[in-house]
Design a protein around this nucleic acid. Structure first.
Lengths: 200, 200
DNA sequence: GTCTATATCCAGATAGAC
DNA sequence: GTCTATCTGGATATAGAC
């Protein structure tokens, strides 16, 4: 019995992951409202009914995705801040890492779009919006602090750091959306062009 | 009789405009699928039934909006290209005009978001997607040509012009989305920061 | 032209068999 | 745990009165 319990738990986790990964792509390409539970069931290879065995509702799946996306992003941002390198280096690493992520893993761009949609739209679950509202400024804070540090050591341009951070994420977001739209056909621009906004 | 005909036509046009302007805001904040015809009716102050007197379906309203948005943008782009000023000046005018537009007219940002959504999502009308597919490269073409001209006269940086154009619109799009999300609370960054990506 | 009432359909969620 | 069948609500679109 205790043995089976573990095995069962593993199956359960796998199922939940299947659902999440199918849902992520569907939500990103169709939006929450236009994604039907049957779509998710079809794509994850199970019946509609079974979905409800693992999640209470479509909204719950959605909110779960947003929560884990924000958690991953914030973790990455905080790890970046702790790296034992200069501010300038951190900015280069961040930017190149993000662009590379978009190229190598389609889900990365999808997560970005999901977050944008959710923040913008009234039609998304309130608790998902709440997660974004409370957690979005973590990564903004990290980049702003790094930029300010770079200004102190003279490697970063002397524009307003908050405005630069806004442009940092606006541009990244814009690129993510382009990537999500055009997929393989989208050629990521050279990171040096973007860097020239921030670095002296 | 011929007199009334004109008056009637005017009322009809006004009604159609009311519907379009209500629909634009709703589509931009909720997405196509989550926007109900009753929402549009409520916001434009008429009954559901009447909407169908002016438009065949929700999708038709949507496609109409996309068409007019693309037409306006392309017209603006082509006018920009014809201005009797230097390439550098054109880039400055374009960027500052866009940022100003986002600040002064909320609909501008909404149009951008609508277009992004439509390009990305399978759940949007095929003819709307087609409009974007065929017309989106007009403005890309304009900016790319201006950038190349600026490279020839030595005022624009020597990165790949296509990549710079991509970054131009990605950044603009990202800012438009931020504006659409945060409205008044969003402070547009100084255009000089963005310009530093392109100008020497 | 405009409204109210309604037919029709479709999707979310549940129930119950295996 | 998984499926099929079904309940139920809500949204699109239409019909018909004024």
């Amino acid at each position: 019995m205790p043995r089976n319990k573990e095995a069962n738990q593993k199956v359960k986790d796998e199922r939940r992951d299947q659902i999440l990964s199918a849902a992520l792509r569907l939500f990103a390409t169709k939006g929450l409202s236009a994604t039907k539970i049957t779509d998710i069931a079809l794509k994850s290879g199970m019946s509609q009914g079974l979905i409800y065995h693992y999640y209470k509702s479509k909204e719950e799946i959605f909110t779960w995705l947003i929560g884990s996306a924000m958690a991953k992003m914030n973790e990455a941002a905080l790890n970046l801040e702790k790296l034992p390198v200069s501010a300038k280096e951190k900015i280069i690493i961040a930017l190149e890492g993000l662009l590379k992520g978009f190229n190598e893993n389609a889900d990365t761009a999808n997560y970005y779009f999901l977050i944008t949609q959710t923040a913008l739209s009234d039609a998304y679950p309130e608790d998902a919006k709440e997660i974004i509202r409370t957690q979005n400024d973590v990564k903004y804070g990290v980049i702003t602090r790094i930029l300010k540090q770079g200004q102190m050591d003279g490697t970063v341009k002397d524009h307003d750091a908050n405005e630069m951070a806004t442009l940092f994420f606006s541009s990244i977001n814009g690129l993510a959306l382009n990537k999500a739209i055009y997929g393989q056909r989208f050629k990521m621009p050279d990171s040096n062009i973007l860097l020239s906004m921030f670095l002296k």
